[in-house]
Simulated assay, not measured.
Amino acid sequence: MITAEKPEKSNPELPMGYSPVPRGKLANAVTCLEMTAKPQLREAESSAGLSLERMPAPDPQTYRQLFRAIGEDWLWVSRLVMTDEALKAIICDPLVEVYVLFSGGRQVGMLELDFRQAGQCELVFFGVGKDAIGTGAGRYLMNHALSIAWARPIERLWVHTCHFDHPNALPFYQRSGFKPYAFMIEVTDDPRLTGVLPRSAAPHVPILE
């Protein structure tokens, strides 16, 4: 449901008005959000059958299977194009924590928290599968994300979301206590045209060949 793809650095200023995007590329409107204190947790509608387990030092194949299952329809792609070595350097770092959300024994969501920057935590990836949207699983996962992050001596928790995500993503983050602080535009190759993702992924985002 919700993604947190980290955008690459871009030019500090964009021209006013419309800017054409070449065919085969995607232009992604990114909203950056943060919080500087732990908010009051909102009650989940239902937590029956839900559990969260940490995935310690996951191997790249297992991690990518989960990453793809949760993020394919929202165009999560960054971890699919990394080398195994580059990916392992991140997800096997002791300051990076990856969690799997289960419902009735099935994997239905993922959470990744990055504490590598002193005093801060990045909510790098956060999402639940389509079947879990609207069931309370997202709120359950967010409450755990906030509790885990703020149990550390941090001063800031931050995240990115974008217009490729579920339309409820941004309001969900704001209801959870995050406040927008910046907008970015990210231009990338369309992963459905490069073969990284199937053409059927993210049908809400048009393909321009």
Rank of each mutant, 00 (worst) to 15 (best):
G49W: 06
A132K: 00
P94T: 09
G24H: 09
E186G: 03
L14A: 15
E186D: 15
A202K: 00
L26H: 02
A201M: 05
Y181W: 14
F102W: 08
L197Y: 02
M184W: 04
Q120P: 01
L14V: 06
T188Y: 06
P153F: 10
F178R: 07
D59A: 05
T188Q: 13
G127W: 01
G105D: 10
F125M: 14
L193R: 03
V108C: 10
L33R: 03
A89R: 15
E186L: 06
P94H: 05
G104T: 08
G105A: 04
R106T: 13
V124T: 06
P20Q: 09
V21T: 13
S51V: 01
Y181A: 00
I207P: 03
W158N: 00
V21F: 06
P171F: 14
V187P: 01
A132P: 04
F125R: 05
F183Q: 14
V196S: 07
L197C: 06
R156T: 12
M142T: 08
G177V: 12
Q107A: 13
T36S: 09
G127C: 12
Q40L: 09
P171Y: 14
T3F: 05
E34Y: 09
T135H: 04
M184G: 03
Q61W: 08
Y18I: 11
P7W: 03
G129I: 07
A86Y: 07
L208E: 11
R54E: 15
D93H: 15
Q120W: 01
D131M: 14
S47W: 01
S51I: 02
F178H: 06
A145K: 02
P7Q: 04
E72I: 05
Q65K: 12
G119R: 10
T31M: 09
S46C: 14
F115E: 04
R42L: 14
A201S: 14
